[in-house]
């Protein structure tokens, strides 16, 4: 591990000031579970790290204006613990298979998003849940759909002077009579069933209207340079009756939308076929949970 300076700001302003003053070799540090591995492997070699642990503004999960605001420093373990995440089944399913229970206690949601791995576990459910991401710098705050945030493997729309400050999820309530019931599901296929790098992962979100799927989002992980939405597959289902035929067709389309690679772990062909299997299974699962 190369030498670096470590800053430990106590406020968001101090953190943003530090980021604004430094050049591109400054990096924020969340839980450290990805960063320390990257530092050791020399994938990143910053001159300065800004530890965000002491920045209270980045903590906390609050519900306001129909949205859940998830502070950047929220750990994966907290997603499993905090009842405010109850409506977001796919997110909690992903959290429950994220690395291992000890890593979940350290790793943060912003860290997983910021690493922007094509196989990042939390990313497909966040895409399926249509999460918004808030970025702050000394001069501005901007909010964008998470789908626009990922540019490629380990490449994001975040500038070096910016921090991820929060993730925002639209809260819907199954209890509310005015909104339609919604449901989501997630699955990660690995060499074993838990705690493994995913060969493929699938997250889906459904909004139901009687026997129809009123709206749907399907997100795929580990089968493209970045986590992606299978929008054409969604079109097959959107506004349609929930049926075996539609389901199969949507799953088939999803498998053609992605662009997996062949490597020593699995072939592209297999990954594609598994996308089809799991898109179908996850939609069935989400539908069953209404």
């Amino acid at each position: 591990m190369r030498e670096f300076d470590l800053l430990q700001p106590k406020t968001l302003n101090d953190a943003l000031e530090a980021l604004a003053q430094n050049n591109a070799t400054i990096r924020p540090l969340g839980g450290g579970t990805d960063m320390l591995v990257d530092l050791r492997a020399r994938r990143v070699q910053p001159d300065t790290l800004v530890a965000l642990q002491g920045v209270n503004e980045l903590r906390g999960v609050t519900r306001a204006n129909g949205h859940l605001h998830v502070g950047a420093s929220t750990t994966i373990a907290e997603i499993l613990k905090n009842p405010l995440f109850a409506p977001f089944n796919a997110l909690r399913q992903a959290a429950s298979v994220f690395a291992n229970p000890m890593i979940r206690n350290s790793a943060t949601i912003a860290g997983n998003i910021g690493s922007a791995s094509p196989a990042g576990d939390m990313l497909p459910p966040l895409l399926a849940l249509n999460a918004q991401i808030e970025l702050v710098s000394r001069n501005e705050t901007r909010v964008m759909p998470l789908s626009e945030f990922f540019l490629g493997p380990r490449k994001t729309a975040k500038r070096a002077d910016e921090l991820i400050s929060s993730i925002q999820l639209l809260v819907t309530s199954n209890q509310s009579p005015v909104s339609n019931p919604q449901s989501s599901a997630f699955y990660k296929l690995g060499l074993r069933q838990a705690d493994a790098i995913s060969l493929v992962s699938v997250a889906v979100w459904l909004e139901r209207d009687g026997e129809k799927i009123r709206d749907v989002r399907i997100a795929l992980g580990a089968v493209a340079p970045r986590p992606m939405r299978a929008t054409r597959a969604e079109e097959i289902l959107r506004g349609q009756i929930f049926s075996e035929t539609n389901l199969k067709e949507s799953a088939r389309i999803a498998s053609t939308e992605c662009s997996p690679i062949s490597d020593l772990r699995a072939s592209a062909d297999y990954r594609r076929r598994m996308i089809a299997v799991y898109v179908r299974r996850m939609i069935e699962q989400a539908w069953q949970h209404f």
Binding site: L80, N82, P83, A86, N89, R92, S96, V97, F186
Partner: peptide, 15 residues
């Protein structure tokens, strides 16, 4: 059976 907390996660993935 699996989650620590009391809010059930439906369909947790685990073998």
């Amino acid at each position: 059976e699996i989650s620590y907390d009391e809010t059930p996660i439906s369909s947790l993935q685990s073998p």
